[in-house]
Amino acid sequence: MTELLWYITAALAIGSGLGVVMLRMPLYSALSLVLHLFTMAAMFAFLDAHFLATTQIIVYAGAIMVLVIFVIMLLSLEGTEKRPSIFLIGIAGAAAFGLLYMMAPAIRRTFPMTGGSLQGDVGTIGKSLYTDYIFSFEIASLLIMVAIVGAVVLAKRIKKNAT
């Protein structure tokens, strides 16, 4: 039962990923990406990483994609770009498929087992984040502050004064 659910989720993930790449209008790509982020959160939940699954929905699907959709709506983007030639699509698709075809048996040989019993709940991640990785945590908060200031400065409209 879990296996079937996993295959359905994986198919949805690949389908929505292809949707992002192939759909014409940017708004449809954004909604397809939201679905993809949900399926990735489900994958994290399959791997018992519950905190990361909910954080993925809160941060990625709930905040970053809202921002992208805002920008698409404010700029009123339509899907007017030219479709890339079928030749380029063929080359890219064939190269990707060929590489994956060669890699797949090697991957399957290296990871046959089902892994350990790690439960990624909030307490475990919190302990590790505040003891081993405290420096990175503080730097991350500094990075976010720099990003906020940068985004406000870049998106500000510069009024040209008469004087």
Partner: peptide, 18 residues
């Protein structure tokens, strides 16, 4: 009953924006 219960509620509040 998830062990990250309240976080899931917060995630659903984030999704309500759409």
């Amino acid at each position: 009953s998830l062990n990250a219960g309240v976080l899931f509620i917060f995630a659903m509040a984030s999704m309500a924006v759409y």
